[in-house]
Write a protein that binds this DNA or RNA. Structure first.
Lengths: 344, 344
DNA sequence: ACCTCGACGTTATACGTAACACTTCGGTGG
DNA sequence: CCACCGAAGTGTTACGTATAACGTCGAGGT
């Protein structure tokens, strides 16, 4: 055995294609890169394409990235993928990315607040930009250090970081919820809030208090819980078990917490919505799986992802990123009704 | 202006670090690659590390991939990320990958059955291997064509493709469900099956029929629906509305369909579990959000991802991949009870 | 006959890294 | 005193691609 063995038929390179087509490697690159009109004749181009197909040629993306200095890949940082909201954000971003021949790689931050390990190393690819969703403020720094174009989704826009922002009109959503409940006659509220301290939840609390304050005569207690059905149930159960005047409506930061609130109500023998109204936030699939179906605020999750990717592409092109909040919409279903007193 | 301008302080390369540390680029590579013991003195190594930190050096991953021919990146192909099961599979795979300094990039196949576009181009990175979860048989071909190491999760192991398999003992799970219901006294079943025709669902159907056949005296009707609460409800409602003897138990291919079945029951005025038992499959968060909580089969989703990644790493190392199915476990909750007749 | 010019390609190069082979140099044993 | 050795690095190369700069060749104008 004197010759080098080739146990695996190594992936063909553009040079192999060139050899097969009887042209130079540069020509292969031109043809396959779509830059041939006027530089390569149609017959030659055809021959190259056939040779490429024949050999099953696939360009080496690492080499291309190295050469171009760009990767057409974005990193999407989300708190947790098991949350349907972020899965949908990803779907939206990935869909728009695909249209522009871009890729999206994910970095789900382990603790749900910000990147723990090095997200860039974990991406295992050179990145053109970063999209970060619903991150805590301090998480910003870690991302910001990489001086990559940064787009923040659903995050505090007053930050000092040079990032484009795509935000939901969360405050308006919470206002719609509050108005709906006030209109039904509710005056005693429980706010079942997320234990996570990010902008998106801070806005919910602020908007709720503002709207109730403006209305006057309304009271609200707040309890916090992790975004988890069981934790939400426990927190709600404890809060509802207090003596004195029970709240007639629970406003939840999230559909998951709302599911917990509904369970708590049932455990305590309170009928939803007759004796207790419950509202969610997000409009996850869960909202219509429950009985009664949840009154909640629909967030255009896919659109958030799309707009985020759009903004990133704009920044990369040197265009100004389109700012402005995305509208959200109250969806009234079966979990809200006038309070017992108003029914009498 | 005669000199080339440098508007952006371009990312430092290993050569910049070398210059700053007063050594050669090769030495930087040795030190930062951790191969220096015995080849570079401790003092020099320290100097290099300091220079790297000073400049904020990050290795160019594209260049590294090109040089090494490996990327330490795997592609995970899943039907849909919004399904919590697959999000958890991803989490498991990504966690184990991170331990081995590997990355995982996702390809959610748009239609939920197999890769539509080119998943490898969409990954936008050279890949070391592919893990495909719950794919339809014909989707195999597309993935197989790339002659990358392939690991199949929860898929037909009798396929001819040279792939490692990590499977759940789905049949046993369905057997446990059936035995549970038979033990409660049920004899008339409705199988609310997934409309998707993949191995994992075929096994459910087969195991259900086998177990019922073995028991004798039991009947089962089958209706199919897409994995969606609304679709599940409609299908179940239609099936339950037939004249004649109503089934006393609905066996669902999935918790989502089970949620639909519960809604259908409530619409028809049937109380779960007193008048109708419902079982799910997967044990998603949804299962404990519903009232009553679902009796279902817990699938170790994260473990599936972990084992899949483990198998891929094994294949890449030339080690044999550990085969064998993962055990699943019936979780009895509140949605199952003896049928009305048995209670009388 | 000479020059020009467009059409069609080719040659050469750089991207940043890792690894191999090689050099330098102060000892050290024979 | 010299050959040899290990320690500590350095010079060089290749990975596969995209593109700038450069050739070639025949047709058409003058």
């Amino acid at each position: 055995m004197t010759s080098a063995q080739q146990p695996v038929p190594a992936r063909p390179t553009s040079r192999d294609v060139a050899r097969a087509a009887g042209v130079s490697q540069a020509t292969v690159s031109l043809v396959l890169g779509g830059k041939w009109p006027g530089r390569v004749s149609e017959v030659t181009a055809q021959r190259v394409r056939e040779a490429a197909a024949e050999l099953g040629y696939r360009p080496n993306l690492a080499a291309r990235s190295l050469r171009l200095g760009r990767t057409r890949t974005a990193l999407l940082v989300v708190p947790a993928l098991t949350n349907e909201f972020f899965a949908r954000v990803y779907a939206g971003a990935a869909a728009l990315a695909a249209e522009h021949d871009f890729g999206v790689v994910l970095y789900p931050s382990p603790d749900g607040t910000g990147p723990a390990r090095d997200p860039f190393a974990s991406a295992r690819a050179a990145l053109d930009g970063v999209i970060a969703s619903s991150m805590a403020a301090d998480a910003l720094d870690a991302l910001h250090g990489a001086d990559l174009p940064l787009v923040m989704l659903d995050s505090d826009p007053s930050g000092t970081a040079p990032a484009a922002h795509v935000n939901l009109d969360i405050a308006d959503g919470m206002r719609q919820v509050t108005d709906h409940l006030l209109g039904l006659g509710h005056r005693r509220f429980l706010h079942l809030a997320s234990a996570v301290d990010t902008w998106t939840f801070a806005v919910r609390a602020e908007a709720l208090h503002d709207a109730l304050g403006a209305a006057g005569g309304a009271t609200v207690r707040t309890v916090r819980a992790p975004l988890d059905v069981g934790a939400g149930r426990e927190a709600a159960e404890r809060a509802l078990a207090v003596t004195g005047e029970r709240p007639t409506a629970i406003v939840c930061d999230d559909d998951i917490l709302a599911a917990g609130a509904c369970k708590a109500a049932r455990r305590l023998g309170l009928r939803v919505p007759d004796e207790l109204s419950v509202t969610g936030f997000d409009d996850l699939a869960l909202a219509t799986a429950l009985e009664p179906e949840l009154t909640t605020v629909r967030l255009p999750a896919e659109q958030v992802g799309e707009r985020g990717m759009e903004a990133l592409l704009a920044v990369l092109d040197g265009r100004p990123a389109e700012q402005g909040g995305l509208p959200v919409q109250l969806v009234v279903r079966g979990s809200t009704a006038p309070p017992p007193a108003a029914r009498a």
